[in-house]
């Protein structure tokens, strides 16, 4: 184990835990980690952290959509559909 190697591994850990690394690079990291207790600890903590934050949603929900705001959206939608309908037969 050399700190330089730990550093190289450290820089690639997100791609490593996402499974986004080429097979040979992934294998290289596996081999390093197999013999490096600090890296094992760190990878585990990063995995747990990523999974905790993935589940995170703020407590706040938007206020219910007002009739006025919904009508504004519905008008925009209807206008888009009308424009599309009048444009299509012309082609």
């Amino acid at each position: 184990m050399s700190p330089e190697e730990c550093r190289t591994v450290f820089e690639m850990l997100s791609e490593y835990i996402d499974g986004d690394l080429p097979a040979d690079v992934c294998e290289h990291i596996n081999q390093h980690i197999a013999g490096c207790a600090p890296c094992v600890q760190f990878v585990e903590s990063l995995r747990k952290s990523v999974s905790a934050f993935r589940d995170f949603r703020p407590q706040e929900n938007p206020a219910p959509l007002t009739d006025e705001a919904k009508a504004e959206l519905a008008r925009a939608y209807a206008a888009m559909l009308a424009r599309r309908q009048s444009a299509t037969p012309a082609r």
Partner: peptide, 18 residues
């Protein structure tokens, strides 16, 4: 020279966001 300074992550519950 080797060990890192790290919290005890086993204390984190599986569904932390709950």
């Amino acid at each position: 020279a080797i060990a890192i300074d790290i919290a005890d992550w086993s204390a984190l519950p599986e569904h932390a966001a709950a």
